[in-house]
């Protein structure tokens, strides 16, 4: 794969996120959570972002997926600037970029069945209800879920099954970028392994192939799964590179502490 000539799927330039102070205007209590972060994500690549709680990982993701407004900088998805996208534009963007969150059960509507939840994006993009149901069952099978669970509600299935359904839902619109924000942190290690294997397999398939932005605080998992890693500390990137190189020869003091913390 000649990555040099490829256009990045995601380009983040000088992205800065500031939580406004008291009453939304007190500059003394304003807090810069993400401070001029820049990186690129190439097609088919899996980029990990690690850092401790409060390092700005989730703020960074929330700005990329437009849940938060950036104070400065830009986010370019597939060549299109989405930094200030709103309304209808966002709907289009979410066909290229999908998310899998930490708590699978909470990310589904509790009053709708799994197949309903998985097919929602498809119905919104103009597919008929019947077609959407058939496609959601295909996606469930693809993600290793028994199609009999299609009629189940999120609380009726296990955390691992629900996370598989969340991945199926994310893949329904054939995104170019999948953002996993601590997607395996709430799962048991055995289930975590299954989910990682599933993501790895899906990513390498030509038909479903997508890039992954993998936010995680488990360095061992990042080493196992990601092609490249960014270390975030106090909102800044302190180190960037291949996971093996960073783990074996960390340059930054913070990265050293992070690795020493792994039990």
């Amino acid at each position: 794969m000649n990555v040099i000539k490829m256009e990045p799927v995601l380009r983040v330039e000088n992205l800065t996120g500031i939580y406004k102070g008291k009453n939304g205007r007190d500059p003394k209590t304003a807090f810069t959570a993400v401070d001029h972060v820049s990186f690129e994500l190439m097609p088919g690549e899996c980029l990990g972002i690690i850092g401790e709680s409060g390092s700005g990982k989730s703020t960074l993701v929330n700005m990329i997926i437009r849940l938060l407004d950036a104070a400065e900088g830009s986010v370019i998805l597939d060549g299109e600037d989405i930094t200030t996208a709103r309304g209808k534009e966002l709907r289009k963007i979410y066909r290229k970029m999908q998310m899998v969150f930490q708590s699978p059960q909470e990310s589904f509507d509790p009053r709708r069945t799994l197949s309903d939840g998985i097919g929602e994006g498809l119905r919104n993009s103009g597919m008929s209800g019947r077609e959407a149901k058939e496609e959601s069952i295909r996606l469930m099978k693809l993600c290793g879920l028994d199609p009999e669970l299609a009629g189940c509600y999120p609380h009726e299935v296990s955390g691992g099954q629900c996370q598989r359904a969340a991945i199926a839902r994310a893949l329904a619109v054939k995104p170019k970028l999948l953002i996993c924000d601590e997607a395996t942190s709430a799962l048991d290690v055995t289930i975590q392994k299954e989910i990682i294997e599933l993501l790895d397999e899906l990513r390498s398939r030509e038909k479903e192939g997508f890039s992954i932005l993998f936010i995680c605080h488990d360095i061992a998992l990042v080493q196992q799964f990601c092609d490249r890693v960014l270390v975030l500390y106090k909102g800044r990137i302190v180190e960037e590179g291949c996971p093996d190189d960073i783990i074996n020869d960390p340059k930054d003091e913070y990265t050293k502490r992070l690795i020493a913390g792994v039990l």
């Binding site: 055995t190 975590q192 392994k193 093996d244 074996n248 020869d249 960390p250 690795i259």
Partner: peptide
Amino acid sequence: EAVPKLKINTKSPVH
């Protein structure tokens, strides 16, 4: 087996 293990080069100072 499912526990992700940190793979560290034995020659690395981190090791």
